[in-house]
């Protein structure tokens, strides 16, 4: 009789413990199951849709990496190799030359190289680029838009939520599969004909 009395509460407590453990286990399994429907074996990384980007310049300021992991890239396929390059030269440049006062880039990260008359090749020096998008703005306004921003994955630390994406006014940041991590204009042609009705 006495024995029964002392063992009964422990049994009840154990029963509650077991029941709760099973409930928690099942709800975990349920949550994992629901989430697993959306899961992909691939990893995801951040990238900028160059057709949505409005070159506001926030990429230079908001990245957790200093200087920003967003850099300008050059989609050579699109480039017109212009002498009068809207991405390289200031709008009021007084000469078409490499002189510092004519350059639009604040860090002189674009290398202008003569190819043949009247064509010039423009190359981004990534170690100097800060991702400010000034050249992107110039190139899109006056040229073909071959200069555009991309997240460089050798520099990006792939934050769970990109701190630039949070402030991007154009919602141009996307999570893309790590197996195709770049959206370079030219080989990435969606939006080429649709993003701008003009």
């Amino acid at each position: 009789m006495n024995d029964k009395k002392t063992s009964k509460p422990t049994n009840r407590r154990e029963f509650i413990q077991k029941g709760m453990r099973a409930t928690l286990g099942l709800s975990l399994a349920g949550l994992a199951g629901v989430a697993a429907f959306k899961a992909s074996a691939d990893d995801y990384v951040w990238q900028i849709d160059p057709f949505k980007c409005v070159s506001c310049g926030r990429c230079a300021d908001y990245c957790v990496v200093t200087p920003s992991a967003v850099k300008c890239v050059h989609a050579y396929d699109l480039c017109g190799y212009c002498d009068l390059c809207g991405g390289y030269l200031k709008p009021d440049a007084n000469a078409l030359s490499t002189a510092a006062e004519n350059q639009l880039c604040p860090t002189a990260a674009i290398k202008r190289k003569f190819v043949e008359d009247p064509y010039f090749e423009y190359e981004i020096i990534e170690t100097l680029c800060i991702g400010c998008a000034k050249c992107v703005e110039g190139c899109s306004a006056f040229g073909n838009g071959s200069l555009h921003l991309q997240v460089r994955h050798d520099l990006c630390v792939n934050c769970n939520e990109c701190s630039i994406a949070r402030v991007c006014p154009a919602d141009a940041f996307l999570r893309v599969p790590a197996s195709s991590p770049y959206l370079i204009k030219g080989d990435f042609t969606t939006g080429n004909s649709t993003s701008n009705p003009t």
């Binding site: 699109l78 480039c79 017109g80 190819v115 701008n196």
Partner: peptide, 20 residues
Amino acid sequence: WAQQRFPKPEFETGYVQPAT
């Protein structure tokens, strides 16, 4: 962007376009 304002030139000096 729909049409390239300045078409890509056809180079005569054998210039090879670098890859991005």
